[in-house]
Design a protein around this nucleic acid. Structure first.
Lengths: 181, 181
DNA sequence: TGGGTCATGTAACCTGTTACATGATTAG
DNA sequence: CTAATCATGTAACAGGTTACATGACCCA
């Protein structure tokens, strides 16, 4: 997965590990949180597999860096992945916890959902900032068509945050109902 | 994570590996797809840690089975987990793919979202079935309070499916707009 | 006789997390 | 002088996936 994310970015432009990390932070972070240790490991694996090629660049006043570019094999791998069917394997820790909340009191659980609601209200607002960052960095993606899909992922984030807030409201309401019954 | 799911189930009733698997299928499957190999491994680890205790039961006409029950330590671990703060680490393969869809044509991508939409429309309908299954198996959870949280997870599933369908509609509309421009 | 249910696991692998480890340059 | 930025990684561990492996009973 991360593998294809890296290939996708290198398909836009040559980058070193550090830049890939930064790009993740600016654009993919809201749906894919990547650790630097994993990125460097994956980079090594991708180079080993022949999907990318790295060259050391000497710099003065700065540490040397290893610039990577995608190979034809890498591009083929990327397009194949894009056309593959996706097998969704849901794994939602929040729901795992929710399922077993019956062990705790109504008060505790109302507080649980109130807190969650607040967190997602903040997230919802945060996606305006995400849109700005998209405009700021959008030029990297070179054209409006590509940048549209970035917009789609942000829209998803906003919708999901909104959905979460409404779901929390429903849960809180039902918990209060039961308390009063 | 799975660890706490198993503890949660064993807190409701004693079960063997096979029953745990079945219960996952009937109730947690829409947000946590567990492999049997992982369940047996986790069971061994939990027993080793003293959180559960297993006893072999001989059966005639059927394979022997190992029944597990939760220990006091296990129950303590479960309640601690329930009160812990959750750190959400988003990882949404669908969005990873969406982000890089700019490599393909508008036609291909419209088809992509149409297909996705259909899948989630089906899922949406499927949650009525999930509700029935909940009523059917609901007695296992012993009381209305516990069963309410099961209902919450189903409601989440339904809301998410709905959100996905609407998001697909938005993406399709924007893609068509661009095609016509 | 063939498939479904009940019942158990192992082994190898892949992916992600956390902690550790280093070091020069630049701006305040 | 001190913190941030640029730049690279390793090691150990945790958690999840896929494939392999076995076998009795029951129903059609």
């Amino acid at each position: 997965m991360l593998k294809h994310g890296i290939l996708g970015l290198l398909n836009y432009a040559d980058m070193n590990g550090y830049e890939i990390l930064e790009t993740f932070r600016h654009s993919l972070d809201h749906f894919w949180n990547a650790q630097k240790s994993q990125i460097y490991r994956e980079l090594a694996a991708l180079e080993n597999a022949g999907f990318i090629r790295g060259t050391w660049i000497e710099q003065n006043g700065r540490p040397d860096k290893k610039m990577f570019s995608i190979t034809d094999e890498g591009r083929a791998e990327l397009t194949e992945w894009l056309s593959e069917d996706m097998k969704e394997t849901p794994r939602i820790p929040l729901l795992m916890k929710t399922f077993f909340l019956g062990e705790r009191t109504q008060e505790e659980n109302i507080a649980f959902f109130e807190k969650l609601k607040k967190a997602y209200q903040l997230k919802y607002k945060g996606f305006s900032a995400a849109d700005e960052s998209r405009e700021e960095y959008g030029e990297e993606l070179q054209d409006a068509y590509r940048s549209m899909f970035w917009g789609f992922t942000i829209s998803y984030g906003r919708r999901k945050a909104k959905m979460l807030v409404e779901w929390c409201d429903e849960c809180i309401a039902k918990l209060k109902e039961m308390r009063n019954a």
